[in-house]
């Protein structure tokens, strides 16, 4: 059975792997799914269930690592609209719009 420190380390590793996806949707999905799944079982006491979840989480970590590399290879240079901070868009519009600027 994994120790609390090991579980935390895997949680961290999975979240870090999630950050590497260039595609907004997949990046957010990996982070959201990791958080939800770890939280759903945070009080799991049955050793055999924990062992099963631990094995599953480790294999999912391997998948995430591999897919982050693959998605990185075929990344588009165009950003998702969700990656552009709203503040920046509003400032841009304010300075270049018909009533903005000087």
């Amino acid at each position: 059975m994994p120790s609390a420190a090991e579980v935390k380390a895997l949680y961290r590793a999975l979240l870090k792997e999630g950050r590497k996806f260039p595609n907004y949707n997949i990046r957010e999905y990996v982070k959201r799914k990791t958080k939800e799944d770890f939280r759903a079982h945070k009080a799991e006491a049955d050793a055999s269930v924990v062992e099963q979840l631990w094995t599953k989480a480790k294999s999912e970590y391997e998948i995430a690592k591999r897919q982050a590399v693959v998605y990185g290879m075929y990344a588009r240079c165009q950003r998702s609209i969700m990656d552009v901070p709203l503040q920046a868009v509003l400032q841009e519009q304010a300075s270049s719009g018909p009533y903005g600027g000087k």
Partner: peptide, 11 residues
């Protein structure tokens, strides 16, 4: 790497 930067990837 320029491309990754443009996408805001942690690198």
């Amino acid at each position: 790497s320029n491309c990754l930067q443009a996408l805001g990837v942690q690198s």
